[in-house]
């Protein structure tokens, strides 16, 4: 909603700017933007073209244009190879990212709400520790986590990838800032006077008002889990548990022995990217809202 508020006045810039549209700088900037757009889009374009080719034409044909169209046989090959393990990888990824991000969002928003709306001893200290967690890189944790998981025999299970994904210090930070700015204390007090329990107030008032922030936290965590490579690489050795990134990586290292795999890596990369890109583009507004409120504090 923040972005919408601000965006309206900026649209008004259109007519005033139009007078200057002929200026040389605007031609140069448009040219520059087109060059940059080409840079960002060409690899994706190549991926789309290449997904229609077989292993032989991948090497033997002009890379930027179609040759011997076999998209659908690639697709059926991808889905049937090794008993349809690719489908399983996609489902695993959805499980890791979907469940991980949902749980992470809920517990982070609860913690952020508590840190914003209650006073208690050591509150600021707790918040500082959590904030420090934002700066600790995930890859630095993966290795000791693996050693710890070995001790409790949790490596090579769904839990080994899922459990660490439940923790989002950034989510706590964002929901605290957001709750502080958007939930009026009077509303909470009114709920108390009406005799509602603290949890009910959080559920029916807190979560409702914080919902834009929740979407942002969910998206951030979802993408972070979807993109995570180091943790599953370290934790998993059973192919059946792989997320799609790790699966494609393992194929990418095997096409020396099995040449048809290169075509599956290409089309698999395309297929695995499509859902995320659709989600991104359709939820863009939420991203920007979250990014704004996130960037303010730093």
């Amino acid at each position: 909603m923040t972005i919408l508020d601000v965006e309206k006045p900026t649209r008004k810039k259109g007519p005033t700017g139009a007078e200057r549209l002929t200026s040389r700088t605007s031609i140069i900037s448009m040219a520059f933007l087109f060059v940059m757009a080409t840079y960002f889009l060409v690899p994706v374009y190549w991926l789309v073209i290449s997904s229609t080719k077989g292993p032989a034409t991948l090497y033997g044909s002009q890379g930027f244009w179609f040759s011997h169209f076999q998209f659908f046989s690639n697709l059926s090959g991808l889905f049937s190879y090794s008993n349809g393990i690719f489908v399983r990888w996609i489902l695993n990824t959805v499980l890791y990212a979907g469940v991980g991000a949902t749980v992470a969002t809920l517990i982070a928003s609860m913690a952020g709400y508590a840190l914003s709306k209650y006073n208690f001893v050591g509150k600021e200290a707790v918040f500082s520790v959590i904030l420090g967690g934002v700066l600790v890189p995930g890859t630095a944790l993966a290795l000791p986590l693996y050693l710890l998981m070995t001790k409790v025999h949790l490596t090579d299970t769904y839990w080994s990838v899922l459990l660490p994904a439940f923790v989002s210090p950034f989510g706590v930070f964002l929901s605290r800032v957001y709750a502080g700015a958007s939930i009026p204390d009077e509303l909470i007090d009114a709920g108390r006077i009406d005799g509602a329990s603290e949890f009910k107030i959080f559920r029916s008032i807190g979560l409702k008002i914080m919902s834009p922030a929740l979407v942002t936290i969910f998206l951030f965590q979802f993408v972070a889990i979807w993109n995570n490579f180091f943790l599953p690489l370290v934790m998993l050795s059973n192919q059946n548990l792989y997320p799609v990134t790790l699966g494609l990586y393992s194929w990418d290292n095997q096409y020396g022995q099995a040449p048809q795999l290169i075509a599956y890596v290409v089309i698999g990369a395309l297929i695995s990217v499509i859902p995320l890109i659709i989600a991104f583009l359709s939820l863009q507004r939420f991203w920007q809202t979250g990014l704004t409120s996130g960037s303010v504090k730093a």
Binding site: F40, W226, F229, T245, L248
Partner: peptide
């Protein structure tokens, strides 16, 4: 923004 939708490994 499109490339950000492509996971790092991919």
């Amino acid at each position: 923004f499109l490339p950000y939708g492509v996971p790092g490994v991919i």
